[in-house]
Amino acid sequence: MMIVTVIFPLLLLVYSVSMDQSNTKAENEILAQPFPQDIHAVLREMTGSLVQLRVEMRFLQRENQANAAKLEELERQKTELDKLKQQLQVKHVAFSAALLAQGDATLGPFHTFTPLVFKHVVSNIGNAYNPNTGVFTPPVRGAYHFEWHIGAHGDGNHPTGAVLIKNSEHIFIAYEHQPTHYGTSSNSVTLLLEVGDVVFLRLWVNTRVYDNQNHHNTFSGHLLFTM
């Protein structure tokens, strides 16, 4: 009985020491594990990365804007070069045509403005004049000079008149009125024309013209210089 009394306290002491050692070992293991970085340090690092990204984005935006400006300038230069090439290719433009290709006839009078189609073409350098419509279309931007001559037998009620039209604008008119004999009139003009403009003649309202194989009524034009 004495032996049991002595051994039991010794066992308790050994168990207590063992538990203390186990707890100490566990605590040391926990302390030995690496702690995560400080949250403020992480935030500072993320903030620095964001600032760097913003700087890079601004740089890329400026670079894109510069490239867009260069591209726009190159396109403008190409357009100018294409225009220059076209001007160099179109060196000569000139035409001259009479009203009737054959026979003789009096045109008019009409109650409205009527286009005059000059069908007897003696020259059409550059093919800018269309004898099927009577319309001249400039192939290049430049200054063009036009002349037109009209005539008809005298008539007390119906004069002779033809107006030059640029697009839809009345420019100049050739007009003549006499009661007897054959009367003529003429006019001329220099116009700055763009590619795509149209120029033609209209018979004036309530007027008339007469033409035959002698070609009294003519329409001519030519390019003076490009611009």
Rank of each mutant, 00 (worst) to 15 (best):
A174K: 04
T207D: 02
G161D: 07
P115E: 05
H222D: 01
N130R: 04
V42A: 05
A128V: 04
Q213P: 00
E194A: 10
I173G: 05
S188F: 02
G156S: 15
Q65D: 13
Q21G: 08
M46W: 10
A66M: 12
Q86V: 00
T180G: 00
V51G: 07
Q52W: 03
I173C: 10
G108H: 00
S18P: 01
M227H: 12
T133M: 08
Q61E: 12
H177A: 15
A162D: 03
G126I: 06
H170P: 04
F146Q: 02
D38G: 01
E147Y: 05
E147Q: 08
Q65S: 13
F136C: 04
T24D: 12
H158Q: 08
G161W: 06
I150A: 04
V199S: 05
N157T: 10
G108V: 02
S220Q: 06
K25C: 06
F172S: 07
G154V: 09
I30D: 08
L191D: 06
L50M: 10
P34V: 03
F113M: 10
T190G: 06
E176P: 00
L31W: 07
V140M: 07
E27S: 13
G161A: 14
H215A: 13
L192I: 09
A41R: 05
L223D: 07
M19F: 11
N127K: 15
L223K: 08
Q33P: 00
L53M: 14
S220C: 09
Q65I: 12
V209S: 03
K91F: 05
G126P: 01
I3Q: 12
I3V: 14
E73Q: 14
V205R: 08
G142Q: 01
Y210Q: 08
F118H: 11
V199A: 07
L201G: 02
V209P: 01
A105F: 09
F219N: 01
V93H: 01
W148P: 00
A94E: 09
E194Y: 05
V14R: 10
T106I: 12
V4S: 11
E147C: 03
Q77K: 11
H120G: 02
Q65V: 10
K25N: 11
D38H: 12
G161E: 02
N157A: 15
V199G: 01
G142W: 02
E75H: 14
F118V: 06
D104F: 09
K25L: 11
F172K: 14
R208F: 02
A68G: 01
T112G: 00
G48A: 15
R44I: 05
V122F: 07
N187K: 05
A152I: 01
L223G: 03
Q178Y: 08
V42F: 02
T180V: 15
H111P: 05
V51A: 10
G142I: 03
A41I: 10
F8L: 14
Q89T: 09
L74I: 11
S188T: 09
P115L: 05
N187D: 15
A41Q: 11
H145T: 09
I165Y: 09
D197N: 12
A94N: 04
S123R: 09
